[in-house]
Structure formats: C-alpha cells, structure tokens
Amino acid sequence: MTAMAIERSYLEKIAELARLELSEEEATRLTRDCQAILEYFEAIRQIDSEADASEGVERSAPLRQDIVDCDPLEDPLRDLAPLWRDGYFVLPRLPAMDADGFEDGS
C-alpha cells in the first residue's frame, strides 16, 4: 500500500479546484499540514473496502407538495449583494465571455 501523499503541485491544483487563492507561505504550510494529516488518516485504509457498504433500514426523503409557498426574504436582495444593479447581482465578467458567450454546467 503506497502512502497517501500530497505534492505541492497537486495541492495547487486542488486549491484551484476549490477557488482558493493561497499565498506562497500558505501553500507551503498547507502542503506540510496536509501531508501530516493524510498520514494520520492512513489508518482508515485498514478497513476492508469490501466491507458491506449497504445501509440497513434507510429513511426515505420526504416529499413536499408542488405548491408555491416559499420562506420569504425579510430584507431586499440589494442589501445582501456586494454589487446590485437594476435587479441583478453583478460581477466582473468572465474573460472568455467577450469572445464566446458559452454557458457551462447543467
């Protein structure tokens, strides 16, 4: 079993996936901390991964009726938003948008 390890470069990839800007010092320190923590978590590998993963009696998600009835907002959204204009949340544009206007997801 190879030891779980996290390289500095991989840590940076993960930080990007999580959209976290890290200073040089933070990245160094996080790499070190994560190494140690992952080593400590190593014990979990002893658990037989074939161990029955099924749950016993599961609870079922309760379903709500299709009724228009939401928990109302007690303050206007513009009080919440860092930048609000004409009824929209506003933020600096994605650079790629100028060229393409693609949409992601769903």
């Binding site: 959209r19 976290l20 919440l80 860092p82 930048l83 949340f89 933020l91 600096p92 994605l94 650079p95």
Partner: peptide
C-alpha cells in the same frame, strides 16, 4: 457573488472567487 465578502480589487469572475 450574492452576499458576504467580495475582494475589492477582483477584476474578473475567477478573481472574485479566488
């Protein structure tokens, strides 16, 4: 984007996040 802290200097969507 919708609430809480937004980095003032951020000039792109990605920068707002990071």
């Amino acid at each position: 984007v919708r609430y809480g802290l937004r980095a003032v200097a951020a000039n792109s969507t990605g920068a707002v996040y990071r």
